[in-house]
Amino acid sequence: MIALIRYSRIRKRIPLHSTAVGKVMLAFQSPEEIERLLKDYQFTQHTANTITDKETLLRGKKVRQQGYAVDNQENEQGMRCIAVPIRDFDNKVIAAISISTLVSRVNVRELERYIHLLMRKGSELSGEWGLHCLQAYINDSRGLLKK
Rank of each mutant, 00 (worst) to 15 (best):
49 N>S: 08
58 L>W: 09
31 P>A: 10
28 F>L: 09
39 K>A: 11
35 E>N: 14
41 Y>E: 13
40 D>T: 03
58 L>A: 11
31 P>Y: 10
39 K>I: 04
29 Q>C: 13
43 F>N: 03
24 V>E: 00
29 Q>D: 09
32 E>D: 11
55 E>A: 13
34 I>Y: 01
31 P>I: 15
31 P>T: 12
33 E>P: 05
57 L>N: 05
58 L>Q: 12
33 E>H: 09
49 N>C: 06
53 D>L: 06
37 L>K: 14
58 L>M: 13
56 T>P: 05
33 E>F: 09
25 M>A: 10
54 K>H: 06
40 D>A: 04
43 F>I: 08
29 Q>G: 02
37 L>R: 12
31 P>H: 10
43 F>S: 02
33 E>C: 05
31 P>W: 09
58 L>T: 12
35 E>H: 08
46 H>V: 05
47 T>H: 00
43 F>Q: 03
42 Q>F: 13
38 L>R: 04
55 E>W: 05
30 S>R: 07
28 F>W: 07
34 I>D: 01
28 F>D: 09
52 T>H: 11
39 K>H: 13
39 K>Y: 11
37 L>S: 01
52 T>W: 07
50 T>D: 08
45 Q>S: 14
40 D>K: 12
45 Q>V: 15
44 T>H: 12
38 L>W: 07
55 E>I: 15
25 M>F: 02
37 L>T: 00
57 L>W: 05
55 E>F: 06
54 K>Y: 02
27 A>W: 01
30 S>E: 13
57 L>D: 07
36 R>E: 13
24 V>W: 00
47 T>N: 00
28 F>R: 03
35 E>C: 01
54 K>L: 07
48 A>M: 10
50 T>G: 00
54 K>A: 03
29 Q>S: 09
33 E>K: 15
36 R>F: 14
54 K>N: 07
39 K>W: 10
24 V>S: 05
32 E>Y: 10
53 D>T: 10
35 E>P: 01
45 Q>M: 13
55 E>P: 06
45 Q>Y: 02
41 Y>R: 10
47 T>P: 02
33 E>G: 03
58 L>V: 14
29 Q>I: 03
32 E>G: 07
43 F>V: 06
